[in-house]
Nucleic acid binder design. Structure first.
Length: 458
RNA sequence: GUGGCUGUAGCUCAGUCGGUUAGAGCAUCGGAUUGUGGUUCCGAGGGUCGCGGGUUCGAAUCCCGUCAGCCACCCCA
């Protein structure tokens, strides 16, 4: 076996690239439907772009090195700092709100495992300059509509949403002190991933009374928004946030994605820079890692040295999403673009110079058709036609084309049944001369063969 | 970075108690009376049994190490 790709890196063979393209198509189609525009930045950035935001510990998880100009650089592990720089540099000139998306390839140096490689492609969708919770609803709707676009439904994927301000207000109302809030977040974030006793012990260590520990764990394990409204709707520390969240839910319903969404106060998204509504998308069976995560980060742009603008966004990677599509059998049947025509030897092949065969191929290509051929005069003339036709069909070609004994050029469909396959004839002289009408008729005929509605052989 | 499981052809896997030149199916390539199809038949190529060391007359097989993959931590996307 020759050397393979580096650990955590992928070779994309044509079938795999076609699947990747399928996901990218869905990402772009939905992002554009929501009026986002695409941008990109450099895959290599100054190292301090990341250490400024995340501290020096981050270096252990980066692909970083010193370049030949003695600059400390890193392959980008995330898009947000680049995005923040680009927006910040033109903050005053950009029409607000900014709605941008990107599909960067990102890199992280850490142990690869299922759903987690050292390299992946991640859709980033961000909005800058809008504080209304309508923007939060719009953002989540983009992520959910991508699931729909790929054939997934609310029984396959669930959106879990929370709001840090809401959780904060509830905790303060219950008697958690400002000083304890940080520690409580840390426990709540992991409540589903560690034993209840461990969570309880950590909350106790943070200074929470036993009754309060129970109450916090109960809320983190699952809460109905209606119950929260009843209990905290009038509390001074929580009321504003309860009301905002109610409006958010109503916007999601109106945007047509309400049935995908569950409240889950345990969604904290690390302890980092999120300031408001946060969300994650999971497969409904809970077998995979998060498909997507994001939320509001109103203070980050300023913290990174940019303008003080509210912002929100999410990232959605191709790896977990691809695993989910595989599990659900949702990849399209024909992932490859079929080739239109394959030149084979017909009964008239021997009557013409080989150059005519290449001229025919060239004329068809000039007319915009995709055409393959054997690239060997010897094989074209000596190999049995049935083998040539069979190879073309197996390669996924839509039709074979050849010179007939009477000198005409004939195409025969390779789709559908082999008996009585449809054919289309054009005079060889017109085909070789690149006659527009003749080639147009061939193109129409090909389209007709591919359209199942008008192709009884399909 | 820590621990557990697994490594045989491009893929899925056989390979007995340690015993001759490591096999099958699928896939690929060539062919089946100068020509039009999925079936069928014949044939071919393709392996440092992950890698290195050890035990042994003899190792795919047993032992140790290492690398890679998977899983769980850690951390996050």
């Amino acid at each position: 076996m020759s050397s393979a790709a580096l650990p955590g890196f992928r070779d994309f063979y044509p079938d795999e690239l076609a699947r990747r393209a399928h996901v990218f198509r869905a990402w772009r189609a939905v992002a554009r439907r929501y009026a986002f525009v695409e941008y990109d930045g450099p895959p290599l950035e100054p190292l301090d772009l990341y250490t400024k935001k995340s501290g020096d510990e981050i270096v252990g998880q980066l692909y970083n090195f010193t370049d030949k100009g003695n600059r400390e650089v890193a392959l980008r592990p995330e898009m947000t700092p680049t995005f923040a720089r680009m927006v910040g540099a033109r903050a005053n000139a950009l029409r607000k709100p900014v709605r941008w998306f990107s599909i960067p390839q990102l890199f992280r140096y850490e142990r690869a495992q299922r759903g987690r490689l050292r390299e992946h492609f991640q859709l980033n969708v961000d909005i800058v300059g809008e504080e209304s919770e309508v923007a939060d609803a719009e953002l989540l709707a983009v992520a959910i509509d991508i699931m729909r676009e790929l054939g997934l439904g609310p029984a396959d994927v669930r959106a879990r949403v929370s709001d840090r301000r809401l959780l904060n207000g509830i905790l303060l109302t219950l008697g958690v002190t400002e000083a304890q809030v940080g520690a409580v977040y840390g426990v709540v974030d992991k409540v589903a991933r560690q034993p209840r006793e461990v969570s309880a012990a950590k909350l106790g260590e943070a200074g929470l009374a036993p009754a309060l520990v129970e109450r916090v764990l109960q809320l983190a394990a699952g809460a109905e928004f209606a119950d929260l409204q009843r209990e905290f709707g009038a509390a001074p520390a929580a009321r504003e946030h309860i009301e905002r969240f109610a409006r958010y839910r109503a916007h999601l319903d109106a945007l047509g994605v309400g049935e995908w969404v569950d409240l889950d106060l345990s969604i904290v998204r690390g302890l980092a820079y999120y300031t408001g509504i946060v969300f994650e998308l999971f497969d409904a069976k809970g077998e995979l890692r998060a498909i997507c995560g994001g939320g509001r980060y109103d203070t980050l742009l300023k913290a990174l040295g940019g303008t003080d603008l509210p912002a929100l966004g999410f990232g959605m990677g191709d790896v977990v999403l691809g695993e989910l599509l595989s599990d659900r059998g949702l990849w399209p049947d024909a992932v490859q673009e079929p080739v239109d025509l394959h030149l084979v030897a017909g009964n008239g092949a021997g009557q013409r110079p080989y150059a005519d065969a290449l001229r025919l191929v060239a004329a068809l290509r000039a007319a915009g058709l995709s055409v393959n051929h054997a690239m060997s005069a010897e094989r074209y003339l000596s190999q049995a036609t049935r083998n040539q036709v069979d190879s073309a069909r197996k390669a996924g070609c839509s039709a074979a084309i050849y010179f007939r004994e009477d000198g005409e050029v004939e195409a025969v469909s390779l789709l559908g049944k082999m008996k009585d396959a449809p054919t289309h004839v054009i005079p060889a002289a017109l085909a070789l001369a690149g006659d527009a009408a003749a080639l147009h008729s061939l193109r129409d005929w090909l389209h007709q063969q591919r359209d199942p509605a008008s192709n009884p052989n399909g």
